[in-house]
């Protein structure tokens, strides 16, 4: 993220990562923030918080990234983290069909419970384990190398079709090789509507009312009227 000399309007965007355990949420963030990859990271307890800037031609977006724990039982904590989020990365593992199901659950949850107008990107991670691993074949580890090197269990079409139906951004990435990672965040940055940036993260007086209810934040949150629209189904 090269700095630009021209002063551009800068705004912060709250982004939350959701998805089944061990699909590579933290690794995506690590790749994006530090351009690094670690085999063993401490599991995320509750959520980890990181920031990274993303330069767009017209403005700078500062991502406040909430990387959540993937274990199923932490799901009930998720509303705490996705509240007020303007963007979400819902991650699944290309080699694990169940993780896409879980991802769909998250999408549904976000669509109904999170801020209306939240930008959601569906990300299939671990592309390096598949045969079309974006030229990273040499990098693939043993798990992917077996069986003609393709551990893919979720086709691009299937996920893409779903993403189109739901109006999600869609990417297949590899946190390990870094393939497509920055693109995801750039696309999200571009997709955030200008209007939402102005009001974003503004401490609203009406937040007080919502605080005591943070488990179901967006029912009582400041954007309540819109939230109801989002819940129509």
């Amino acid at each position: 993220m090269a700095d630009s000399n021209t002063p551009k309007p800068s705004s912060s965007v709250k982004l939350v990562l959701l998805g089944e355990a061990a699909v590579g949420k933290s690794s995506l963030v690590l790749r994006f923030v530090n351009n690094d990859f670690q085999e063993n990271k401490e599991p995320t307890i509750g959520a980890a918080f990181l920031t990274q800037k993303c330069n767009l031609p017209t403005r700078t977006i500062k991502f406040e990234i909430w990387d959540t724990a993937g274990q199923e039982r932490f799901a009930s904590l998720a509303p705490m983290y996705y509240r007020n989020a303007q963007a979400a990365l819902v991650v699944y593992d290309l080699t694990k069909p169940t993780s896409l199901i879980k991802a769909k659950h998250w999408v549904a949850e976000l669509q109904r419970q999170a801020s209306p107008g939240i930008v959601i990107a569906l990300v299939g991670n671990k592309l390096d384990l598949t045969s079309d691993g974006a030229g990273s074949g040499g990098d693939a580890d043993g798990a992917g190398a077996e069986d003609s090197g393709d551990a893919r269990k979720v086709t691009t079409e299937e996920a893409k079709t779903y993403a189109e139906e739901e109006g999600l951004l869609f990417f297949e990435t590899s946190a390990k090789t870094g393939y497509n990672v920055t693109e995801v965040f750039t696309a999200i940055a571009n997709a955030i509507p200008e209007t939402s940036l102005k009001t974003a993260r503004g401490p609203g007086a009406s937040h007080t009312a919502g605080r005591t209810e943070e488990q179901r934040v967006n029912l009582n949150g400041p954007r309540d009227p819109n939230a109801k629209e989002g819940c129509a189904c």
């Binding site: 959520a47 705490m80 983290y81 937040h207 007080t208």
Partner: peptide, 22 residues
């Protein structure tokens, strides 16, 4: 905290859950 819309449990939850260990 309320005014700046900072959610306390976001920071304190890991304290309790891992008994301050991490």
């Amino acid at each position: 905290l309320v005014k700046s819309d900072v959610q306390l449990s976001v920071v304190s939850l890991p304290w309790f859950l891992s008994l301050y260990i991490n």
